[in-house]
Write a protein that binds this DNA or RNA. Sequence first.
DNA 1: ACTAACATGTAACCCGTTACATGATTAT
DNA 2: ATAATCATGTAACGGGTTACATGTTAGT
Lengths: 180, 180
Amino acid sequence: MALAHAIMTALIEDDLSGYELARDFETSLGFFWQASHQQIYQELRKLAERGWLNKREVNQRGKPNKIVYGLTQPGREALARWVYSSTRSRPAKDELLVKLYNLDADNAAHIAGEVTARREEMMRRLYLYEKIRRRHYGSPQTLPTRRKGVYLALVAGIRQGEQFLAWCDEALELLGSIDA
Amino acid sequence: MALAHAIMTALIEDDLSGYELARDFETSLGFFWQASHQQIYQELRKLAERGWLNKREVNQRGKPNKIVYGLTQPGREALARWVYSSTRSRPAKDELLVKLYNLDADNAAHIAGEVTARREEMMRRLYLYEKIRRRHYGSPQTLPTRRKGVYLALVAGIRQGEQFLAWCDEALELLGSIDA
DNA sequence: ACTAACATGTAACCCGTTACATGATTAT
DNA sequence: ATAATCATGTAACGGGTTACATGTTAGT
């Protein structure tokens, strides 16, 4: 049920089309919950059927028409209730860590390569996070309540990313000391 | 395909039954890749059919018989090849962070409660990690190669956990300052 | 002419979760 | 008796990924 609530969360402040939602799920909310456009379109249909979203077609000039979805009152209520439900955390699955259990002299260089690639990917992501933080979340104490929550999620991403970079460095050092 | 390789990874050094694998997937390798016994039994069947695992029934006294699986040579080769495949990271999904996007004066106390619960869960987990580290990974430089990999995975878990605790504290402070 | 971005969908398959199902042995 | 641990499975469902499918407009 989480995707439904993630989509509704994305619609709290703005009405969006499936395409726009899919784009947003590549950034912002998508940092913590990703979804493909195929999933999103399916879920939007279900949510509209259930009465949690309404839809209207918007004519655009220079672009194809789009179908814009908005939260209905029942939708807002369902979302608010969901926040009070309890979530059990399921720790992240990471293939790279499983691969580490298979470390040997032959594959050490390849694994080091994968760690390096991940490190670079995380650097790019952190750069993005920091840009957003500087622009919109400079003084968290003064933010309106909801934005404080978004800020905390962003900080979680930043902290986790910085920690990951440190781990990569440690891993690369140890991996580098293994003789091929 | 990752579950198959996680199971084979668990069988590198010891032959195990489905039940024993399911138990192991609650700790050690399971820290980075979890699976239920239902999934494991299915996957074992498939892997045996494919010739990557062999199985033999073991009679036990005082306990029901068990079916013990071991890696075949083709299995070891498939596992070794898998390590060289490239994995793209898919960032963790976390419902709690999505909930933070819904923060308001009403639900702040509930969310703080969930953060506290997660914090305690992570404390317990870190205690376990640290115990394992102290017992088996005191001097990483001197470990045999494969164990160095396992050590790095463990360190990743520890680092990530410590970071998470710090984030929880920051989050709880900010959440506590919100007036109900 | 071609590519990128805009825009929306269906179908098949695989993976994971929940529920159901059974039965032995050991300890309290 | 009852609960806990050992031990192995099936079935239904739902979520997620990949592949397939179509069409417009704007820019090079």
